[in-house]
Design a protein around this nucleic acid. Structure first.
Lengths: 209, 209
DNA sequence: CCTACCGATCGGTAGG
DNA sequence: CCTACCGATCGGTAGG
């Protein structure tokens, strides 16, 4: 039965379990609120064993964050593809964005904590990694404005940032506050995003459909 | 020259200075990321002196938070008055809300951290303290919907929560990310809030003005 | 991946 | 408001 070689016989190795446990604890309690002992206890090893797999506590935080960035880089092509495809560009992009954060709400909490705890580092990361994505979406909005299909006074960059910020904050604080059901919050967020971007249909313009 | 009685001769007493310093540090670094030593150093006293004025570190956090709630309770009547006054109800309420958080961005950061760190306690507080305010504003929105002046498919409670959440998250992360200027972000937030609530003017309805 | 241990710092107390 | 001090826990290392 244990036919696999020893190196991969474990269902899930310590490194993988550490990342999974640390993601949850760092999202819930923050970096300073999470001790290596907490992580070790839930992983099921002794504290020094963690530091065999990661050189320091901060390296665990960095690895957790990078893992999230890798998930984002997997989702990003789908988002940008959605932005160039046919009709439902807007809903497709927003759906992918919603999926990314609702798939694992810890992503939203982790991101929010990083922004609060490490503003300079996150600012640099936004400028280098997120900016191109924001500009890409903002570019499509500008084209829509030139076609007369979108609100001409919308500020494309600020709009994209707001929709994203609102989504992250909503997902991060949702199950925590437990006030409104998440699907109801997200539905209203989508309605607000649409209503504040699309111009109401006039009788003249669109002919097809 | 030192004509004042000794009891109030200090420009600012230790308790007041502690609250001011702790507000900033707790907003910037969070509860677990701030030590009593950090606070004592900036206040300019020894650590045990803080614990003469406050029974514990958690009591300092609670006092800082309650001070913010008191500021909110000062602003709240102005907000609700704005909601019942004449024409510019919407802008007045939103202006007061914007003023509350931009007056001291640490309020937004503190609130966000509390929601992340103490979800259950904050959930209870929202339900007991914020709910009436949310319902009040949502009530005005419902009336507007019945008059046919506002988007009929808007979800009033979810709408109010989203505008507030977005404002808090935007102010909290603003100077930190340093991407868009705050006034530009806030301007777009107001535009989005208006455009997603008010129906575009039709030719028939309004006669006065 | 373990036991054993390190110096530093934590929140908090005693006692004046 | 201070000095002196407490036990507990922190991240991390030695060495096997």
């Amino acid at each position: 039965m244990p036919a696999q070689p020893a190196k991969q016989s474990k269902v899930e190795d310590v490194r993988t379990r550490t990342l999974r446990v640390a993601t949850r604890l760092l999202a819930e309690r923050g970096f300073e609120g999470t001790s290596l002992q907490d992580v070790a206890d839930e992983v099921g090893v002794r504290k020094p064993s963690l530091l065999h797999h990661f050189p320091s506590k901060d390296a665990i935080r960095a690895a957790v964050f990078e893992q999230m960035l890798q998930h984002w880089n997997v989702s990003l092509p789908r988002i940008l593809r959605a932005a160039t495809s046919g009709e439902d560009q807007f809903d497709s992009v927003l759906d992918e964005l919603i999926r990314f954060f609702t798939d694992d709400p810890d992503r939203a909490r982790l991101l929010l904590r990083e922004v609060l705890d490490r503003p300079r580092e996150m600012g640099a990361l936004v400028r280098s990694q997120m900016r191109p994505w924001i500009e890409s979406i903002a570019g499509y909005i500008r084209k829509g404005q030139e076609r007369g299909a979108l609100h001409p006074d919308a500020d494309p960059e600020a709009y994209v940032v707001h929709v994203t910020t609102n989504l992250i904050a909503t997902v991060a604080t949702q199950r925590l506050l437990g006030a409104l059901p998440l699907d109801r919050s997200v539905k209203e967020l989508v309605r607000m995003a649409r209503a504040s971007l699309f111009l109401p249909l006039k009788k003249e313009s669109t002919k097809k459909r």
